[in-house]
């Protein structure tokens, strides 16, 4: 009777042996056919990256440069292929961004380069690559990660875009400030129409969904911060652009509503521990536009106050808001032509672009700060659900 005695973990060297002819099967099962919403939900974050790296370690260990090259090429091409196929699915893109970054971190952490070994345990140092320097491949994988990041931003933008104007500008959560009579009765009867309307709450829920998906996938916290900053930039830019194009959005009460909405977004950041990621700062032009709707716009002193307050807005934007400003009741009046002239004169010497609308397609440059993992490769086990029984733990 053959008795299957499980090996102790310390006997493993954190490598996975595979036959050359199984390489295609490996990338198919692990990359192309893996469903982030199915099997992958229960995996340890970054598991596909660790598995691929452990296979790579074995190819390096047996000193087979061709095997190393083809595994890296197949991995990169498979990730590109799955993103081509399911690039509009946020979960897929987020999953492969997290795993590509983890793979990149592994290539650094186990490169043998002392700069990346500072936080390694002595056992982890024994697991460094022994034959090949993959610095050039690291660059290619970093380029791939940038591509995936840009795809993630596009994907996220496609989902957020239709919610922004409705949730940030049109929908009113503060009752009775708009000057329009409260419409309790009408609201109830038009509930079917309302179902298609996005509110600020829809935006906040969507932001939370993005955030929790990225956390689940083990995305580096520093990378999450960059994604959130980009999300806030898009929300701020789209909202401001619409305000600059719509007279009905330039009133005292809209200013109030926008400031309330911004405070809710800030509250969301605080709740997620993201107050220092630069996201709030991207809303500054919108915040100033909302303040501009609310301040007095009559005297020379008012003009001076406006000029010193609106540093994040261009002259074109300030003048546009003042021109569009619409009183909602009899206590207010339109901004006089003379007042707008005064503002223009005061801002004449500002060095800036004549730009009116913000560039909603702008993407901040992304970086992937090195983030080593404390996970011991020799302890990693492969769940049978991944269909990788042809890999041997070494």
């Amino acid at each position: 009777h053959p008795v299957n005695i499980p090996r102790r973990e310390k006997d493993f060297q954190g490598m996975l042996e595979y036959k050359k002819e199984d390489e295609l099967k490996l990338v198919k099962n692990l990359i192309l056919e893996l469903k982030p919403r199915g099997v992958a939900v229960n995996l340890i974050p970054g598991l596909p990256a660790y598995i691929l790296f452990m296979c790579l370690r074995h190819a390096d260990y047996v000193n087979d440069d061709q095997k190393v090259r083809t595994l890296l090429t197949s991995t990169i091409n498979s990730i590109k292929k799955i993103l081509k196929k399911r690039g509009d699915d946020f979960e897929t893109v987020s999953f492969w961004l997290a795993n590509t970054c983890r793979f990149l971190h592994c290539l650094k952490q186990y490169s043998g380069d002392e700069a990346f070994m500072k936080h390694n345990t002595s056992r982890q140092n024994e697991h460094c690559l022994s034959n090949f320097d993959l610095a050039e491949y690291r660059q290619v994988i970093s380029d791939l990660a940038i591509q995936i990041y840009q795809q993630l931003i596009k994907c996220m933008e496609n989902i957020l875009q239709p919610m922004i104007v409705s949730g940030m500008l049109e929908h009113e959560t503060i009752q009775g400030v708009s000057g329009v009579k409260p419409t309790g009765l009408r609201k109830r009867t038009s509930s079917i129409a309302d179902e298609g309307t996005y509110t600020l709450d829809s935006i906040l829920r969507q932001l939370s969904a993005f955030h929790s998906t990225m956390c689940q996938h083990g995305t580096d916290p520093e990378l999450i911060k960059q994604v959130v900053k980009q999300q806030f930039y898009i929300i701020g830019a789209v909202t401001l652009n619409n305000l600059l194009l719509r007279k009905d959005m330039c009133s005292w009460s809209k200013g109030m509503q926008i400031r309330y909405n911004v405070s809710q977004l800030e509250e969301w950041l605080r709740d997620k521990g993201l107050m220092v990621c630069g996201a709030k700062e991207t809303l500054e032009p919108l915040i100033q536009a909302a303040q501009l709707l609310q301040v007095k716009k009559k005297t020379d002193e008012d003009a001076e106050a406006i000029c010193s307050m609106c540093q994040a807005l261009t002259t074109a934007q300030i003048v546009k808001v003042l021109n569009l400003y619409t009183p909602v009741n009899e206590f207010e009046e339109r901004v006089s032509v003379a007042f707008i002239r005064t503002i223009q004169t005061r801002l004449r010497d500002r060095c800036e672009s004549p730009q009116l609308l913000m560039d909603t397609k702008m993407i901040y440059p992304v970086t992937f700060p090195f983030s080593p993992s404390s996970l011991a490769l020799e302890t990693i086990q492969i769940p049978s659900s991944l269909n990788l029984a042809f890999l041997t733990r070494v």
Partner: peptide, 30 residues
């Protein structure tokens, strides 16, 4: 020490060049 051992630098193709080495040729062709 692992870190001081010389390793052979593997020259890498660019991302675009890699795409040309299509590993899924059979399956991709109509």
């Amino acid at each position: 020490r692992t870190s001081s051992r010389p390793r052979i630098l593997l020259k890498a193709p660019t991302l675009a060049e890699m795409e040309e080495m299509n590993i899924f040729e059979e399956e991709d062709s109509p």
